[in-house]
Design a protein around this nucleic acid. Structure first.
Lengths: 231, 231
DNA sequence: CTGATACTGCCAAATTCTGGCAGTATCATA
DNA sequence: TATGATACTGCCAGAATTTGGCAGTATCAG
């Protein structure tokens, strides 16, 4: 790969990592020695890229670099369409619409041949197993998460025991067969997960919960031993 | 001026000119010989730039090379992130990278508060069942589909019976547990599906197959009784 | 203090780049 | 249909750049 291609590549790699990355990692990713990587970073900076390097930390690309990203390569279009198809197939109605609308927005800015690639994308999603219909509106759950509002839940656990709880919802996890709401349970004073098909009733309260959902998610991940990923 | 800087320059010069410019003029503007200019144009094209050159006319940069700013409602951001996370979790390495890169590109042209929404998206994808590792490179299959090239397959069916076939691949379907290549089988003169984990070996031929993959997919759908959907 | 990391200068080998030339292909137009 | 303008390609040899390794310094977090 020529140097000029590599520089654009490097920019894209930097865009992908939202947190600082060490030079060694970057060098590995683009297949070049650390010495050359330093030179490449310097080149990009000389051309105006807002790349910040801190000793002991790594590099991070600050937004607002003069050159917007290049257009999507066909594989990326395929990946976007495949993901949206999965959402459209497995998600509830509002989510399905959101996926379709998002694709339409992207299509609107694509040059014609890429728009064709989007329409003609050949990666299909097979139908999943029938997911039990939730009695609760999933959009309500998502909104509560997004706005960091407390939820009042009527929940029926695996053994059929009903309970009423106040939870701080911070994430919704999609599995092949079930969906699980993750939250901090005021009753138990601990993290709890709730299968959405076992939620009998949910009501979003006006009261916000006192922590950031990002912080809750991070803490939950640490307890579960799940490392952070950028995507 | 180094070559890599020059290429970005050339891009700007092309963006400035709204009407076709001859190679000679471009070469003058960036201070390089005509021979080198041709090479530079070729480099940019190789990196995806939509530069059109017509003999007797000149070069013109078609719109759609760079990604313009984008806006999405929060639910659509969530849908895109969720879909990309699914692809990143269930796809092979190149597909995973493509999904991440696509999101990174989108993030780069989002206004800051939406970029935060993207990072903070609370819809997670639970890990899927372990998919058997394919002995064939999935990227090769996708490329054959994209370029409508014939594939030479060594396939071992459910009963363990091996066969060699020439197929016209037109789609790749993702199920929860398996992936299936859809194609027209020259041997059987009929549509056939091939589980990717049973493909022993695949080789993409130079020969294109004589139909459009869109048409094959449509025909296949009709036979299967699957209605067409936009996403 | 220590470890991790950013960064610089130097050098010789490897690689790429460059301009020029000769030739072909294609388009617009006279 | 003939002509001029232009896009493109292959080849070549000299020029220029790039590369990786090494040695060394600086800075930051814990």
């Amino acid at each position: 790969m020529s140097r000029s291609e590599r520089l654009l590549d490097l920019l894209q790699v930097l865009r992908r990592h939202r947190r600082p990355v060490s030079g060694g990692v970057l060098a590995d990713e683009i297949g070049v020695s650390i010495r050359t990587l330093y030179r490449d970073i310097a080149s990009l900076q000389a051309q105006g890229a807002a790349i910040e390097g801190e000793p002991g930390v790594g590099y991070i690309l600050k937004p607002g670099f003069l050159l917007p990203p290049l257009m999507f390569p066909p594989e990326e279009i395929e990946a976007l369409v495949l993901g949206s198809r999965w959402v459209a197939d497995r998600g509830d109605d509002p989510l399905r619409d959101a996926a379709r609308n998002a694709l339409a927005r992207i299509a609107a800015v694509l040059p014609p041949e890429l728009r064709d690639a989007l329409d003609a994308s050949a990666l299909l999603v097979g139908p999943g197993v029938k997911i039990p219909v939730d009695s609760v509106d999933p959009a309500l759950l998502r909104k509560a998460i997004r706005t960091e509002r407390k939820l009042s839940l009527s929940y029926s656990d695996g053994a059929g025991v009903a309970s009423e709880r106040l939870v701080w919802p911070f994430a919704l996890a999609f599995f092949d067969q079930v969906r699980v709401l993750l939250g901090w349970c005021e009753l138990r004073q601990d993290f709890r997960s709730f299968r959405t098909d076992r939620i009998v009733h949910a009501q979003a309260l006006d009261a916000r919960y006192p922590k950031r959902r990002q912080a809750l998610l991070k803490q939950w991940r640490e307890i579960q031993g799940i490392p952070h990923r950028d995507v």
